[in-house]
């Protein structure tokens, strides 16, 4: 039971970040390899506001989200907008360059120390054999609310219909008067805001170090690819699935009661995804697109 709870906590973080990426990939068709750095900037800003600046938690979180959104917007204007209409693979390289620049910025401003937003302030809850903190519970609930809000937006608003139309057929959507450039900006910035939320989530639940940016990006993209790329719900499910695999890989006894060492947790999940994609390259939850 504890493993399932741990999986839910880790999966919520992955879902938060991968969900935004799935929308970006669906609408723009590009990958943003600076995602981990964007999440770190959101988290580090919240830490700076709450720690050294001694602001209350809520304004610090809002500040982190705001700065994450602004940096994502700059990322879009500098590394995606000038390139993605020429070739959708160009942003793959430009965001790699941007990730280096952001890494340098993070190291210069926040330095290479682990940063935790809540130090010794957590409140734990014991329910029989299961133990979790109230902050973790809040984070899981906030993620659920976020995902529900995105689902409502996608399926019950005209903006959501425009997004779905662009995902299904970008040219047809444009010919119907949908402003793709506005939509692209909004969706990209939204993905950065979700990433910043993920960074703040990590800063509250564990701690933030500059070295985690890259594995975060890759795990989020592994969820997007395993889920079927432009399938939002597939991505969310894949994010939770990867997190559960990571927890059960090292938390449950395998052959003759032996445990896999914790250090291999990430490897097991990545190898599982690679094997799955070798068997089904289109992803676990891929679907047929409408064609004429």
């Amino acid at each position: 039971m504890q493993l399932i709870v741990n999986g839910l906590i880790a999966g919520s973080l992955a879902a938060l970040m991968a969900g935004g990426l799935a929308l970006v990939y669906g609408v723009l068709g590009v990958f943003n390899l600076a995602l981990g750095q964007l999440s770190l900037i959101g988290g580090m800003t919240a830490w700076w506001l709450h720690g050294p600046m001694e602001l209350p938690l809520l304004p610090s979180i809002l500040g982190g989200i705001f700065v994450g959104g602004i940096v994502t917007w700059i990322t879009f204007e500098c590394t995606v907008a000038p390139f993605y209409r020429r070739d959708r693979f160009l942003p793959l390289v430009t965001t790699i360059a941007w990730s280096m620049i952001l890494d340098a910025f993070i190291l210069l401003v926040f330095q290479e120390y682990p940063r935790s937003i809540l130090t010794n302030e957590k409140h734990f809850l014991d329910l029989g054999t299961v133990r979790f903190s109230l902050e973790q519970l809040a984070l899981v609930l906030v993620t659920f609310i976020f995902i529900s809000a995105v689902a409502w937006m996608l399926h019950s608003t005209s903006f959501g219909r425009k997004i779905r139309a662009t995902v299904q057929h970008a040219d047809a959507a444009r010919s119907l008067g949908i402003s793709s450039s506005f939509l692209h900006r909004v969706v990209f910035i939204a993905s950065g805001v979700l990433a910043a939320c993920g960074g703040i989530y990590m800063g509250i639940d564990q701690n933030l170090t500059p070295t985690i940016a890259f594995p975060i990006t890759i795990k989020a993209y592994a969820a997007v690819i395993a889920g079927g790329k432009d399938n939002f719900w597939g991505t969310i499910l894949a994010a939770y699935l990867i997190a559960m695999i990571e927890q059960f890989a090292v938390g449950a006894p395998w052959f003759f009661g032996a445990y896999i060492p914790v250090g291999y947790q990430q490897t097991v999940a990545l190898v599982f995804i690679i094997v799955i994609l070798l068997i089904k390259p289109s992803g676990l939850f891929s679907r047929q697109l409408r064609t004429t």
Partner: peptide
């Protein structure tokens, strides 16, 4: 793009 991401994932797995 799937290859790009998963070849990095394989690299990470090997490092691990």
């Amino acid at each position: 793009d799937g290859l790009g991401i998963l070849s990095i994932a394989a690299h990470l797995a090997i490092i691990n």
